[in-house]
Design a protein around this nucleic acid. Structure first.
Lengths: 194, 194
DNA sequence: AATTAGATAGAACGGTTGGTCTATCCGTCA
DNA sequence: TGACGGATAGACCAACCGTTCTATCTAATT
């Protein structure tokens, strides 16, 4: 039997779950009850609700998940890039799917000075780097532009699937990604021949 | 000098502004103060905060705006469809831009039974119809799929521009739209020759 | 055995939430 | 003149918000 995690970890787990399901405006009382943790522990470990939210976003490892998905798809950059949308299809079809937690937090936190905005920004920048690198390997003529296009597609899929999941936005977006990748060098090669 | 609008209209105007800037979780007190309206009038006209939010979404006329933009772009379906992204570029560059109000409301209202979800759904369905019709006129081989792709692009632009406006997502998305439209019949013709 | 850090429970803080209530005012119409 | 519908101001409600506080308990360290 595994040991019960400490209060800090229990808080993070409960907050990750509740802020995704109910949004970042969920009350601290609900988080404390779900975590089975004393009120004081929250302020001891995170300084307050905002600190907890920031830590939840930082520890979410969503970017790492994209890397894993692409690694599992093999070494062909084209296949790796397309695998992203298969994963998005799985994610958006999950029962409790509520969109991208970063986008939701960005929209929910109207105050531009909220510390969470930095984490959100960092996450999307990191995603951009991942896609830009992969698109360069795929031989895309303009990896920087293509990376922005990829971000639009990913955010679009996650946003649209909340309201209209049966539209299968992940599949639709994969079609667009294929059009993009047709601009690249010979499809099956990791990099274009020089 | 024009007459001052009645309480109902003042409430809608104030709520439209405040819910966009601060999200639908903005307090009724703030709305009442901005509208210069008695507390009772809100419950008289809209039954409550939820009713007001629903009416704000219903009266937003965002779908009509897309029609106007396309009409202003002429009669060539291709030009009309691409004009959407020029408009999105303008919108996302506006100082107070805070994304798509419907997407924001969808994410903020965790309760699936909230009456606003119906309006949001209706809006995006209406957008789909508009795009599907235009894509059919442009001679796209699969207007239904293409319409979903267009929705992904639009939602993606509006979502992503909140966090990374300098990425110019509207321009990036326009490039993808051009790729899509290359699949259609002769670009400058309203419909493909049979 | 004594000390200490970390966790617990729970009261209490001032402020805000959406909603209901009473009372008053004002213009319209009969 | 009188009645009435609509608007106003503002008190009031219970519930909840994030935060601070005191007090107690427990387990590891010295």
């Amino acid at each position: 039997m595994t040991e019960r995690p400490g209060p800090r970890e229990r808080l993070l787990t409960a907050a990750r779950d509740l802020t995704y399901r109910h949004g970042v405006h969920v009350g601290v009382d609900a988080i404390l009850e779900a975590a089975g943790v004393a009120r004081r522990s929250l302020y001891q470990h995170f300084g307050g609700k905002d600190g907890l939210i920031v830590e939840v976003l930082r520890g979410d490892l969503s970017a790492a998940r994209y890397r894993q998905v692409m690694d599992a798809a093999g070494t062909d950059p084209r296949e790796r890039l397309l695998a992203v949308f298969d994963e998005l299809e799985t994610i958006t079809e999950q029962p409790g799917f509520r969109g991208c937690r970063y986008t939701a937090a960005e929209l929910a936190l109207a105050d531009p000075g909220h510390p969470a905005h930095g984490e959100i920004r960092g996450y999307k920048d990191e995603l951009r780097e991942i896609f830009a690198g992969e698109l360069a390997k795929a031989g895309h003529p303009d990896p920087d532009l293509a990376a922005e296009q990829y971000l639009v597609l990913v955010d679009g899929v996650l946003a649209h699937a909340v309201t209209r999941p049966e539209a299968r936005p992940a599949r639709a977006a994969k079609g667009l990604a294929e059009l993009m990748l047709n601009l690249a060098g010979t499809p099956s090669n990791p990099s274009p021949p020089r």
